[in-house]
């Protein structure tokens, strides 16, 4: 290899290293609402209401919307019930009383961004350590997560 070519290879190498550093970041292709953040410092909203697509308070009527409850129950039975009990722990925590522990936004973010929550949120990290199974994203859309919240609220009020 000639000296000139060698030099040009080294230029290439340094360009490469530079380019590599410039890359990074998250290019995961989960076709989901998951938005894993890597910021160590969480905002006050995030600490209280979780990390994910829900970034501000949502309106929750005192009155329960029964239509939403039915929709939420159907999704819950298809996509959640194999891991959660309403009363007592199973693969994941008991959910009959989760609305007493958490805000609607927190629960929605947990549903929509479970890996982000267990990776980066102190509550999620603690739960993962306790349950040792990662809750999966179950291909639930935002309005469906809202319906599940309504179902959980209804259960909580009536049991």
């Amino acid at each position: 290899m000639s000296f000139l070519k060698l030099v040009s290879r080294f230029v290439l190498l340094s360009t490469l290293l530079f380019a590599l550093q410039a890359c990074g970041g998250d290019d995961s292709d989960q076709r989901s609402a998951q938005t894993e953040t890597e910021e160590p410092g969480l905002t006050e909203f995030e600490l209280e209401h979780g990390i994910g697509p829900i970034t501000e308070r949502i309106e929750v009527d005192d009155e329960i919307d029964q239509e939403l409850v039915t929709q939420g129950r159907n999704i819950y039975e298809m996509k959640c019930e194999m891991c959660h009990n309403m009363e007592g722990r199973m693969v994941g925590p008991e959910l009959g009383n989760v609305m007493e522990r958490r805000s609607a936004e927190f629960v929605m973010n947990f549903i929509l961004n479970p890996s982000g929550m267990t990776n980066n949120h102190p509550v999620g990290q603690e739960l993962l350590q306790e349950y040792m199974t990662s809750m999966p994203f179950q291909n639930v859309k935002e309005d469906e997560a809202r319906a599940i919240v309504e179902f959980l609220r209804d259960y909580n009020q009536n049991n």
Binding site: M1, R9, L12, L13, L16, A19
Partner: peptide
């Protein structure tokens, strides 16, 4: 990206094994 990546291998190969 391909070319840059390949350059890396070429240089690495040179550095580690000589010519």
């Amino acid at each position: 990206g391909l070319l840059l990546g390949g350059g890396f291998v070429a240089v690495a190969a040179f550095l580690f094994t000589g010519c």
